[in-house]
């Protein structure tokens, strides 16, 4: 235990935390409070007058079948993205660990995609899989797959998941590589001597010991898929076809800034806020406890 530092001056500690507090207040709490306030207002499309309506907006949003559909889309999208991004990254990390020569070179190459901005990643996938001009779309069609993300909702979702996961794989890869390196080599050797073959060693020793990393990435990836994929959705599908890929975040934007239903949009973002808080709390309360060994 480090000894507690006590400031002789009563005012100094407050002054020291003040800048951080100010930033948090101005950039996080104020907008959040604004959103909360706005979610209880009903405003005409021209912004000329508004009326305080308590929870009417929430009632309306939660009763809206479009909103419920959007929740379903978001869950499917998030689970699929997190799963794909983490499984592929783990596979790549395990493979990259096994490379003997020029390990660093492979690793660097695998980390690069993370430097690509989400919207640009979206555009890449949009072009590659565009049903009329995309080079990969042509390949798919030649293989006999009727690929059309512009008209088919499932195809659009697959494309979106691919684009969103692709970008996250590098990030996950980096953490899995670090996690793998932190596992003492003698443990693997002891398991080998104990008669466990490679696959068995992975599932009984490596994977359980990676649990803290996996858990951390699960939190990061779900949050990413839930909230940070606006750019990709916007670039790749724009929520279409026919709302098939309209996630909650995208709907907030669409209702607020395109359809100008500000009250409803604000109510939706408050709901999103509650979902984030709940998700994080659940993950840390119930999952984290079981995954640290020390």
């Amino acid at each position: 235990m480090t000894p507690r530092v006590v400031f002789p001056n009563k005012l100094l500690p407050y002054l020291l935390v003040a800048p951080q507090l100010a930033i948090t207040l101005v950039f996080f709490y104020w907008p959040a409070a604004q959103a909360l306030y706005q979610s209880m207002l009903k405003e005409d499309p021209f912004g000329l007058k508004s009326k305080f309506v308590w929870f009417d907006n929430f009632k309306k949003v939660l009763a809206d079948p479009n909103y419920l559909h959007s929740i379903k889309v978001t869950v499917v999208f998030s689970v699929a993205t997190a799963a794909v991004a983490m499984i592929v990254a783990l596979l790549l990390a395990v493979m990259a660990e096994k490379v003997v020569r020029s390990k660093g070179f492979y690793r660097t190459l695998l980390i690069w995609p993370y430097a690509v901005a989400p919207a640009i990643a979206g555009m890449l996938f949009l072009f590659l899989f565009n049903p009329s001009i995309g080079s990969l779309a042509i390949l798919l069609r030649k293989m006999g797959i009727a690929w059309d993300p512009v008209l088919n909702g499932t195809d659009a979702m697959v494309l979106l998941v691919a684009a969103a996961a692709w970008k996250q794989i590098s990030y996950n890869f980096l953490f899995f590589v670090a996690g793998l390196q932190a596992i003492p080599k003698t443990l693997i050797e002891a398991a080998a001597i104990d008669g466990a073959r490679e696959a068995k060693r992975f599932w009984t020793i490596v994977f359980p010991l990676l649990a803290p990393t996996t858990f951390f990435l699960l939190v990061i990836n779900t949050t990413y898929a839930f909230f940070d994929t606006f750019g990709i959705v916007h670039a790749v599908t724009g929520g279409g076809p026919g709302k098939a890929t309209e996630t909650l975040v995208y709907k907030v934007y669409n209702d607020g800034f395109v359809n100008l239903i500000l009250g409803s949009s604000a109510a939706q973002s408050v709901i999103l806020m509650i979902i984030v808080i709940a998700l994080t709390a659940i993950q840390f309360r119930y999952v984290e406890r079981k995954v640290h060994y020390g």
Partner: peptide
């Protein structure tokens, strides 16, 4: 023959116990 099939047992310096 790999370590898996040699039918040996080893005690490591850092013990290498499975922590989980």
């Amino acid at each position: 023959v790999g370590p898996t099939e040699r039918d040996i047992a080893m005690v490591f310096q850092n013990y290498a116990l499975y922590p989980h």
